[in-house]
Each structure stands twice: as C-alpha cells, then as structure tokens.
C-alpha cells in the first residue's frame, strides 16, 4: 500500500499556503484547531485567525457576517459539529444569502475510530447536500484535498469540504493531478461495472478493482469528489458504458453519494446498482480499519457488491 496521509493534514497545509497568497482568507476555530490543523494558519496569521470557543452556532453566524464584508472565512470543526449542530445557521445565515463561507470539517465518518458514534459523522453529506446553494466536496486523498481547498477559495459561494482524521492512501500523483470543478474523475478503465467512490473509499475501490481483475472482472473506478452539484453527464456516461454500478462512501447509505448517483441513474439511465456505505446505523468505538470491516465498507465489501450487481446485469 502507498503512503498514507490524513486529508486534514493536507487541509492544514493548503490553508497556510492560501493565507500567504490571499489576505482576505480568515479562519474560524471552535477549540479544535490543533486537531483540524488550522493551527498552522493560526501560528502564521494570528490577526486573521478567530478562536470562537466551543460555540459553533455563533462561529457560523460570525463567519457569515464577516463574509458580507468581503472576507473569505474558512470555518473548521469536527464534521458532526460543523453540520448537524449548526444546520440552521448554515442554512439561513450562509446558504440562503449565498455568502462566501467555506465549511471545512475534519474527523468525518466512522474512521474517526475510538471516539465513537457521537464524533463519527455519517449524515453530514446528506444534510449539506439538501441545502440549496451549497457545494459539497469530499477529496479522496491528500493530493486532491490540497487542490480542493485552493479551488474552494477561488469559487464565490458556500462550499462544504469533508476531511478525514486518519491516514488515507495517496492515490493521485501531485505533478499530474488536476481538479475539475463539478466533474467526476474516471481513474481506472473497466467495462464490466462502474464503482463510483468518494473520500476514503476511492482507495478502497481501487484496491477492490485490482483484486476483481484477478477474478476476471474489469471494474471502472470513478472518483466523485464533487457530490453536489453532481456531474450528471459523467455519471450517465460511465453507467452507459458498463451497465452496472456500485457506489462506495464512508457515510450513511441515505443522503450521500449513493443517493446522488441513484437519483441521476433512476431518472436517466437505470442500471443494476448497489450502495456500499454505513447501513443507517450509528458508529461505535474501535480502530478505523476494524470499523471499516465491521460496518462492511472495506474493499472486500466493495468486491462483494460488485459481484452482486454483475449477477443482476
């Protein structure tokens, strides 16, 4: 397996770089800056770093107010506290007036690990995806995460970004990688089925595809970094090509990537489909890799899902 880097680390580095280039970037923290990695920005640009304390609702509203004055606020906390806890503030103070606030959350999904269910966001993508004006991006590795942060800063409007606590295999080449806003990214050619994957599941999907090849199955792997707006044409094109689809996400099977892909295909090009994700249940304490197995979302489970849809093809 290749080198592993937590996408939160890439976020922290990218934010620091952005801070050097753009004086309008301001960063908000709710007493978790050492964990979300905004500490690097805080150390370099203390005057543009706002420690808001354990008061997330006010943090979100304050960021909205600052955005009306031309600043580009990055609001960071853990995924559970940056979404469900502040859903109404995000909805009414940021998304409805379409303000230029970036919500960058870390510690998403069950790979948070030992802290357990209260700290494992499995509904964050679903919440953010259902709010008008909100863009939802989940980078698949550290290389992509850095480019996502840069692109989000250049985009005028609310963006939700989801980063991991734990290490994620680096799957992209830093020299070659190009982030295309709102476009799916095919990363492995295949003709038997398509695996649409996002976040930590991109690496798992590639692993699954390589192992499926040994069994004579050619899986196409498509990285869906931008879950909203979903790339309708790109999704349809790959489904048309392969005729069977598996989705893979470290999120509830309701409301996230699987739902987004099912919406597109259901209306445009129905094919046999299976969603790999957390099956509408809360997480629990354990090691990240143990939990991936326990909740049946690791590469083995992507493989099983692939074989199941092929039977229905």
């Amino acid at each position: 397996m290749s080198e592993k880097i937590a996408t939160r680390d890439a976020y922290g580095e990218a934010l620091l770089e952005l801070g050097k280039k753009n004086e309008d970037i301001v960063v908000f923290d709710a007493d978790v800056g050492s964990s979300t990695r905004v500490k690097h920005f805080a150390g370099e640009f203390p005057e543009r770093f706002f420690q808001m304390g354990i008061a997330e609702q006010n943090m979100v509203g304050t960021a909205a107010g600052m955005a009306t004055c031309g600043k580009i606020p990055f609001v960071s906390t853990f995924a559970v506290f940056g979404t469900a806890r502040v859903a109404d503030q995000v909805r009414n103070s940021i998304a409805y007036p379409n303000l230029n606030v970036k919500i960058a959350v870390t510690h998403a999904g069950i790979t948070v690990g030992e802290d357990g269910a209260t700290h494992q966001a499995i509904e964050d993508i679903g919440i953010m995806r259902s709010i008008p004006n909100m863009t939802v991006i989940v980078p698949g590795d550290a290389v992509e995460a850095k480019e996502v942060v840069k692109a989000a800063a250049e985009y005028d409007g609310p963006v939700f970004m989801r980063f991991t606590r734990g290490g994620v295999p680096v799957v992209f080449d830093e020299e070659e990688y190009e982030f295309k806003w709102g476009k799916v990214m095919p990363i492995r050619e295949g003709s038997d089925l398509t695996i649409f994957a996002t976040g930590v599941m991109v690496g798992e999907a590639l692993d699954a595809a390589n192992r499926l090849k040994e069994e004579g199955i050619e899986a196409e792997v498509v990285n869906v970094h931008t879950i909203k707006p979903i790339d309708v044409e790109g999704v349809i094109a790959s489904a048309k090509k392969t005729g069977a689809v598996v989705t893979a996400e470290e999120h509830n099977i309701y409301g996230g990537l699987g739902s987004a892909i099912a919406e597109v295909l259901g209306e445009n090009h129905p094919v046999p489909m299976k969603r790999v994700g957390v099956k509408d249940t809360f997480g629990r304490s354990g090691g990240p890799e143990e939990l991936m197995d326990y909740f049946e979302i690791s590469a083995e489970h992507v493989m099983s899902a692939a074989k199941e849809v092929l039977k229905r093809k």
């Binding site: 301001v26 005057e47 543009r48 706002f50 609702q57 006010n58 979100v60 509203g61 304050t62 960021a63 909205a64 107010g65 600052m66 955005a67 009306t68 004055c69 031309g70 600043k71 606020p73 109404d88 503030q89 909805r91 009414n92 103070s93 409805y96 007036p97």
Partner: peptide, 24 residues
C-alpha cells in the same frame, strides 16, 4: 445588510461585521 428571520442569528452576523471592521 443581513438576511435574518431565524431568531438568534443576526447578532452573530453583527459580531462578524464588527470583527471585520476591527480587522480592517
């Protein structure tokens, strides 16, 4: 100057604008 209606949120936006004023 600010979209409001969901109670309790306007004062936070005001804090943000005041902080921006100090910063600039």
């Amino acid at each position: 100057d600010m979209t409001t209606g969901s109670l309790g949120q306007g004062i936070s936006a005001a804090v943000g604008m005041a902080l921006a004023g100090k910063l600039d």
